[in-house]
Amino acid sequence: MRILVVDDEEDVKSLFEQKFRKEIHSGQFEFSFVFSGEEALRFLGNNPSGVVMILSDINMPGMSGIELLKSIRKDYPAAPPKVMMITAYGDNDNHDQAMHFGADDFLSKPVDFNELKVKLLNTL
């Protein structure tokens, strides 16, 4: 399963790679990392049908996670990837907005990786 992680923090890449070492090693998950909303849209343009799941942060400089979500839902209505939003701790407004604009799921920081792993495996 190809998963696109969108976060402006570059360390997220090595964190995910280490956290999901076994799954990546066994080929269950295949992670791609982009560091902004704009980059994410470009990536999706280049790989139109490959991405199954998008994990996106909401608070990012430039295009926010919510705007990215809106664009995805507008541009890819046919084969929609699943979108899971991640926000800072206990941010109710972002949660409601994300759900309103069609997010499939919602995680709050700090991310519980065990919970995330279970959710990703269920999606498989």
Partner: peptide, 24 residues
Amino acid sequence: AHEIQNPLNFVNNFSEVSVELCQE
């Protein structure tokens, strides 16, 4: 608090994953 929380999350996550790595 918000600004501190992000780097703090990394500290916690990386230290956690390091424990796992040690086990591995």
